[in-house]
Amino acid sequence: MTAQTGYGLITTPQTVAEAVAAMAGGAVPIAGATWLLRAPLRHEPMPDRLMSLRCLTEVQALDIGPERAVIGAMVTHDALAGALAGQPDLAGLATAAGASANPGIRRIATLGGNLGAAGFAASDLVPALLAADVTAVLATGSGLQSLPMAAFLAGRGGGGLILRVEIARSARRAAHARLPMRKAGDYPCAIVSVSADVSGGTIRDIRIAVGAVESTARRWSSLEDRLTGTALDPARAEAAAREMSDDFTARDAVDAPGWYRLSVLPVLLRRAFTQIKV
């Protein structure tokens, strides 16, 4: 346990510009603070200078429109799951938001916090956002910056303030398959999130994101290429995934060995496909 001494400061900027300036001066933005408050358990010092985003309207948006969905950084998992119910193209994101951690944490943990916590390998939202092909909108010293999810993850910690993500709506279908060790309540050891454009039983386009297997979630591009143009067949998808699971270098960690994550990955893909097919 790291002893916490000294007095911290949480500022509450009133505008995005103030927030960006504060960040440039070293303040760390906090949203739900669920990751931050566990710093002592990770033996990390808690930052002295923090910044609450609660007064910024720009991070509160939760607008699921017919063409576009906008989800602000301060939106909690719980609120997100509620807002996305019954939207087939966002069903994966809905499952991710509604099944992660536990109900109490889902009421406080936010989208922005999940995106900002680079050390959290088992985030449910991150692979779901990858599969949903969202665009992250960040505020920086030189104005707003829009980044595709993969680019955002690659440069995480790059200094911008995450304001929201934006999603172009479409007729796709999505699913999110996760595997905790219990029925629920612990972090999944592997996650597969899928969004597919299917017509006539054939996959026209597909995005497959894998979380918790490596330290950062990423798309499974080679498998996407292989499955595009094939029939939406859970068993064949599983077989293809098994042949290609060498694409990942899975983490060996206390919760599960790497071989196990790789072994269940194709199973999760099959489950996601089965959900999409229904």
């Binding site: 219990r182 029925k183 629920a184 309540g185 612990d186 972090y187 206390v254």
Partner: peptide
């Protein structure tokens, strides 16, 4: 290697 409730998993209501 199990310092807390994240790593040491006891049965929950669903289990």
């Amino acid at each position: 290697e199990q310092p807390g409730f994240e790593q040491y998993l006891v049965p929950l209501a669903g289990d």
